[in-house]
Design a protein around this nucleic acid. Sequence first.
DNA 1: ACGTAGGCCTGGAACGTTCCAGGATGTGCG
DNA 2: CGCACATCCTGGAACGTTCCAGGCCTACGT
Lengths: 344, 344
Amino acid sequence: MCDYADPVPEDRRPTLSDVAAEAGVSKSLVSLVMRAEPGASPSTRRRVLEAADRLGYHPDSRARLLRSGHSRLLGVVFGIQHTFHADLVTDLYTAARETGYELALSAVTPDRDEKEAITGLLQDRCEALILIAPQSTTAELARLTTRLPVVVMARGVRGVDVVRNADADGLHLAVDHLTGLGHRRIAHIDGGRAPGAADRRRGYRSAMQRHGLPLETRIVPGGLTEEDGAAAARILLDEGLPTAVAAFNDRCAIGVLDVLTRARAELSVIGYDDDRLARLSHINLTTIAQDTAAMSRLAVARAVERAEHSPAGRRELVVPPRLVIRGTTGPASASPVSAAARRR
Amino acid sequence: MCDYADPVPEDRRPTLSDVAAEAGVSKSLVSLVMRAEPGASPSTRRRVLEAADRLGYHPDSRARLLRSGHSRLLGVVFGIQHTFHADLVTDLYTAARETGYELALSAVTPDRDEKEAITGLLQDRCEALILIAPQSTTAELARLTTRLPVVVMARGVRGVDVVRNADADGLHLAVDHLTGLGHRRIAHIDGGRAPGAADRRRGYRSAMQRHGLPLETRIVPGGLTEEDGAAAARILLDEGLPTAVAAFNDRCAIGVLDVLTRARAELSVIGYDDDRLARLSHINLTTIAQDTAAMSRLAVARAVERAEHSPAGRRELVVPPRLVIRGTTGPASASPVSAAARRR
DNA sequence: ACGTAGGCCTGGAACGTTCCAGGATGTGCG
DNA sequence: CGCACATCCTGGAACGTTCCAGGCCTACGT
């Protein structure tokens, strides 16, 4: 890691030529060294690096990219409000590092919509875009794909590269786990129109069917925030409790859990995502984990591949989910141990 | 918002010269027209625009920026794990929009430290940096400042522009509120070495003093996550409960609340930040709000000002905090109403 | 001893803009 | 008529890189 020191007397940022002059070599050579290409002797290399460090030199990515034609930049669009997106971005960074590409982040906020986030990245001349759970229509995404490679994460879309986890399988895991504990009255709090919600709903339905529980199938409208989960839990309290709940995602599950705990209701609750929040010891949520590290690697690899060779047709890469058993699920017929106590 | 359509027929992107040739003028003239500068006759202007449109010309921002020297780009370094940082970034986006500057985001993750995040932005040739609660040493920050304008948010540092809230005042507000409700045994769960923690600790101490409660002063080591809060709460349970707790921040407060609620302890708890999480109805946390919108506006304004005129000496802009009363604080001598019940 | 291969290095031409100095016109005014 | 002064336009030099063609050594094989 280089230092921020700046002993250059000028106010101008140091350039290749400055470093070249300082080290007593040509700028071509400095360029080589900065890119870690072969063709410089170890000693000169060291001398150049020292000179660069002394001047506080940082390569100018605009010039670099103007000349070389490619930016080695991957644009990422994510919802800054979503903790799970943050988890994905974290892994995308490490995945990108291995490929030598940089990430350009562009956030969607309540005040900055997806279109704006995307146009921003287009101006930066990214070589490919990774969109996390985008809300754009399929048509919009298709049009975007004609302009540059696009990889969509955590949502299924036709005609675009997609990396996602097997949402339906995830709910099978959840229902299997719960029935294994003896539960029969298992409700699903769904995600409405959120990306992945339809698949999870479908998975829940077929899993219940498979366990011979079609009559116990019960889907409560929910959403992807804690608020949504809390609202759904209140509906359950009003209309009659199941013994277990599979929520659309962890945030939703946390909302459910909070309302139920307070009402002293003893339910098993399972979430989805293995959000950072779910792992907190005071939440300790049983959940279906998405393998964010693997998904990130795949997404980056696919984006890079397409940026470089522009290969094959669109592909859908599906990663299997995994059950993570923590404290919020337990036997259906347990003696009155409160859900809260069980969680510790 | 522009469309993503791509009417370029050729494999090479058309350039200024292409348009110039097509319109039968010089590229300088095309450049003028594209930037909507005066100096071209209406008829030629129309001819050029038509030619550009015909070729599907889009200016190359890399070359433009390289030549014109300024990027109109503000770099932002933030911790992607921190929900409060996300709140700030959200407001920074809206603040930046008003000034015509773009934001370049660079996240700090467990795998990507602050130095790396900063170097990334330096390569993009940002005109100024906004650092949210940076962990770099004062010396490092000072050195960085010699390279380009730097504005630090949510942390006090000498020798650098700082935008922060009055942390000490915040704890005065908190303690005032609690004593107003009749509390005397008020503990503070602190933030350890986190940015702002020292000031908040100091504010707590002097507020207790001011209320004639120096003997009730009790500082429990905490931190900035839910885990830290939960751990501190367990210490309180072991060593004897106060009647109220002022936590370092909202996440910490949420951890406290969770442990205490479960132990059926009736305490008033107040957080800090007015984090998005604190506002959730099922948390409904009384807290000290930082005016993130105002802080963001100030930070952006300062960064832009310094990028353009490089004025005056370093300044510290301090924004007053505000008490937000929600459900987690109540009268000290209340009859056994549980904290949980009070929260609804 | 001599050619040659390869390692190390240099110079200069791009890349697509913007900026600057100036060159044509035409128009108004003494 | 001639001069000043707009107005409209042009050519070429930057900007900071990368890339390419080549130049100098030294070492090595014959």
